[in-house]
């Protein structure tokens, strides 16, 4: 960790200049009709400012990633959208409705589905109960049969305590839970973290499947390979700011440079 800070210390300034220079959004077309719009969002933890004037958007059926180092503010951004982090300024709208006064549970019922980085599986609930806990909030919600058909392992283990599943299975469960709920916009916090390649691949398939149904996905990801395999657009976050906004083609073309910049 410490070596990449020192290593790139001398070059960061120049890179930042070129990265955040004119035309930084080139190649990234905003979605046709935006589902989620975050405008001028700043967030604090006490006195410490962790997000500065962040503006991003996600359209239905679009997969958008937030890429950046640890501590860049990616998770805080997701938590702010979900309404779990309240010390913020700026606006967050979902389908044109301002969410400022809405609690986290109201936002969830409005269609935002949260898949936290620790998967958020309840140990004291069975797999089936984990799936059935949230209310169904949209007509497109997956019925339980479809969930089980798509994730046979969850059916097999439906009476197990949620946390007795493997890490990959818990990730499936966390995603299946918000699909059963019928969320229209998924906030996925590092779904590939710590999982075997074959499972990561499976998660990629799931993301493509739900994208096909018009569900929007805002994905926090440090795994750049995974990010470019599933996403349409990318926002690069550094020190709480959006420093770059790229379409997937540009992202691929500049991957090496970006990796260095991100210190990953």
């Amino acid at each position: 960790m410490s070596d990449d800070t020192t290593d790139t210390a001398g070059t960061t300034t120049t890179e930042q200049a070129s990265l955040s220079g004119a035309g930084s959004t080139a190649g990234a077309e905003p979605g046709p009709s935006r589902m989620l719009e975050v405008a001028g969002l700043s967030a604090w933890y006490g006195e410490a400012r962790v997000l500065t004037d962040v503006s991003i958007d996600v359209a239905p059926g679009e997969v958008v990633t937030l890429v950046g180092r640890n501590g860049a503010g990616k998770t805080t951004l997701l938590r702010s959208v979900m309404g779990l982090h309240r010390q913020t300024e700026g606006t967050i709208t979902l389908d044109g409705t301002d969410l400022a006064k809405r609690s986290a549970d109201a936002r969830a019922r409005a269609g935002i589905g949260w898949v936290p980085d620790d998967r958020g599986i309840y140990a004291s609930l069975t797999v089936a109960e984990n799936l059935l806990l949230p209310p169904v909030v949209h007509a497109d919600a997956w019925p339980l049969e479809r969930v089980y058909e798509f994730f046979p392992v969850l059916h097999e283990r439906r009476d197990f305590p949620g946390t007795k599943l493997s890490g990959g299975e818990q990730q499936m469960l966390a995603m299946a839970r918000v699909l059963r709920m019928g969320s229209r916009l998924l906030l996925l916090d590092e779904p590939s973290e710590g999982l075997a390649p074959v499972i990561v691949q499976r998660i990629g398939e799931i993301i493509r499947e739900i994208k096909g149904q018009g569900v929007g996905v805002l994905l926090v990801e440090q795994n750049v390979t995974f990010a470019r395999a599933v996403a349409d657009r990318h926002y690069l976050l550094a020190q709480g700011k959006v420093v770059e906004h790229l379409g997937n083609d540009d992202f691929k073309a500049r991957e090496g440079e970006l990796l260095t910049y991100l210190g990953m």
Binding site: L84, D105, A108, G120, L133, P134
Partner: peptide, 9 residues
């Protein structure tokens, strides 16, 4: 918190 984020008041 997590339970709120799953739509439960």
């Amino acid at each position: 918190d997590r339970t709120r984020a799953l739509g439960i008041n």
